[in-house]
Simulated assay, not measured.
Amino acid sequence: MKALMGYLAGLMFGLGLAISGMTDPARVLGFLDIAGEWDPTLIFVLGGAVVTTFIGYRLVLRRSSPLFGDAFQLPTKRELDGRLLGGATLFGIGWGLSGYCPGPAIASIAGLTAPLAAMLLAMIGGWWLARRV
């Protein structure tokens, strides 16, 4: 049941990305183009995600345990370190150059293009490198 719930959550996330247009890298790059044809769509999608998460966490964490698990798995680390800052920097550079972040990139695999393939290969290389460092 836990795996099914994970699949359904991923499916909802992917559908949300597709419906909102966030699988289109031009939409993301349009948001980053503040000096040109700025597209504010991304800020509304991010705002909706923040509000949903804010409310959702407060409702869910009132429970003593998750519906399909033994205990909540929440992050415990609170300090900033070089690995976190370096990873966030590389993520931002990759997102700004390609217009894709991991979720939309994976959701867009059906329409694979050369830039998307390059981004996915770079992402896999980054995961591999992060495990080695």
Rank of each mutant, 00 (worst) to 15 (best):
E79Y: 05
G47P: 06
Y57E: 13
P25A: 09
L116Q: 03
W95R: 05
M1C: 10
Y100I: 02
G10L: 09
R132H: 09
L4D: 07
G99Y: 00
P115M: 07
L11Y: 07
W38L: 05
G48E: 10
M123Q: 10
D81H: 05
L11P: 00
G125S: 06
F44C: 04
C101E: 01
L46Y: 07
E37I: 07
G30T: 00
Y57G: 02
I43T: 10
I19V: 15
Y7M: 13
D24Q: 14
M12F: 14
A71H: 15
A117F: 08
A3V: 11
P115K: 09
G92D: 00
M22L: 15
R63A: 15
A88Y: 09
D24Y: 04
V60E: 15
L80Q: 06
P25T: 06
F91H: 03
D33I: 06
G36V: 04
T23K: 03
G87C: 06
Q73C: 09
R58W: 13
A9K: 05
I19K: 07
D70M: 08
R131H: 14
R27W: 00
S108Q: 05
G36K: 03
L120R: 09
L74Q: 09
L112A: 11
S64Q: 15
P66A: 07
R132V: 08
D33Y: 07
G111R: 11
G30F: 01
G126V: 07
L67A: 15
G103P: 04
S64A: 15
T52P: 03
R131F: 12
E79P: 00
D39H: 12
A35Y: 04
I109K: 10
T41D: 08
S64E: 15
P104C: 04
C101H: 01
Q73S: 14
G21S: 05
G47E: 06
G10I: 10
